[in-house]
């Protein structure tokens, strides 16, 4: 970077420090909004997710344009779009929680044990994890959804099924991340010393190794959550997700909106679609921000002071 170019760039760097802040803050804000919407869905949504008649028993009517009663219109099935989108947040949140919690616990435990003890079990687990990891996750989720759905069940079982379908696909990701961290850490001096004083193995595993292996976990979790929403929506879009009568799901609503699009009806697809995009963007921004901060090559450091045009004594110009 030339000397002349240095001055205006500082301004940009300031801005981009702002950008990383902006990404983190925007991401966080969207995620908080999403969680609050999910929690308070019963209060926010004017109608139930499967409600097709108002209090006096009059049907909403199908494909009604947005109006005072239905601010985002109604679907082809005569459901209130706004209420469906709000309730959908709840479904999405539960599915994400199920998927992230279940797959992280399973993946972390397997990765920890496999990485620490090594041996044949480790080798077999690595090959299995790699095989599943390389496979298109949506297809595996479809197979799981088929089988779990065919056993039937209530509303919560449907959401749970979607969550479990996504879980299996994500276990290998946690496994790989944690295992490679464990491999790095297990030869560190503090683990050696814990072994030397005969600390219980569970203590070594959880206190010494695991606590120090969680560096990249927040990024994996955000990536995971984003993928969970997309997979859930994709399952719904293919009609393999949650039944519309048991919960509201954005992907299903989009599936029903495909034919609306050709007859120039916007509201049935735009709103659930935008909800998916918004939540994924929020989670991704959060993850990107964290990723940038944890990767020294990508981290942007604020310059201590503006370059005044004179070189420091050692004659060295600092490059970014």
């Amino acid at each position: 970077m030339s000397r002349l170019g240095n001055l205006p760039i500082i301004k940009h760097i300031r801005q981009s420090v702002g950008l990383q802040c902006f990404m983190l803050i925007t991401g966080l804000a969207i995620v908080v909004l999403f969680v609050l919407t999910a929690i308070f869905a019963p209060l926010i949504a004017p109608y139930g997710f499967s409600q097709i008649k108002d209090a006096s028993g009059v049907s909403f009517g199908a494909q009604k344009e947005p109006s005072a009663e239905h601010i985002w219109g109604t679907t082809v099935g005569g459901l209130d779009v706004f209420s469906r989108v709000i309730w959908g947040a709840q479904t999405a949140l539960i599915s994400i929680l199920v998927a992230v919690i279940a797959s992280s616990i399973l993946g972390i435990l397997l990765g920890l044990v496999s990485g620490y003890f090594g041996g044949k079990v480790d080798r077999v687990l690595v090959v299995i994890a790699d095989a599943i990891y390389s496979f298109p996750s949506l297809l595996l989720a479809i197979l799981l959804a088929i089988m779990i759905n065919s056993t039937g069940g209530n509303a919560f079982a449907g959401i749970l099924a979607a969550g479990i379908s996504i879980t299996v696909v994500f276990v290998p990701q946690y496994f790989r991340v944690i295992r490679s961290e464990v491999l790095r850490i297990k030869s560190e001096a503090f683990v050696e010393s814990a072994k030397a004083i005969h600390a219980p193995i569970t203590r070594i595993l959880f206190k010494h190794v695991l606590r120090n292996s969680t560096r990249t976990l927040p990024i994996v979790i955000t990536m995971n959550a984003a993928e969970a929403i997309l997979t859930l929506a994709a399952l719904g879009f293919l009609g393999m997700g949650i039944e519309p009568s048991s919960a509201s799901e954005w992907g299903y609503d989009l599936n029903r909106a495909v034919s609306d699009v050709t007859s120039n009806i916007l509201w049935t697809s735009i709103f659930p679609g935008a909800a998916i995009v918004l939540v994924v963007i929020g989670v991704t921004l959060l993850g990107e921000g964290l990723n940038d901060l944890s990767d020294p090559r990508l981290r942007i450091r604020r310059k201590p002071k503006a370059f005044d045009g004179t070189l420091p004594d050692d004659g060295e110009v600092k490059h970014d």
């Binding site: 981009s16 994709a234 697809s269 998916i276 994924v280 991704t284």
Partner: peptide, 27 residues
């Protein structure tokens, strides 16, 4: 890097990633 071009491109790529293909297809 870190100028407005970079910011725009990065936001575009996040947007592409966040957009389910079937929703993008519908749009």
């Amino acid at each position: 890097r870190d100028k407005w071009q970079d910011v725009t491109v990065r936001l575009f790529s996040i947007f592409c990633y966040a957009m389910p293909v079937f929703f993008l297809g519908l749009l």
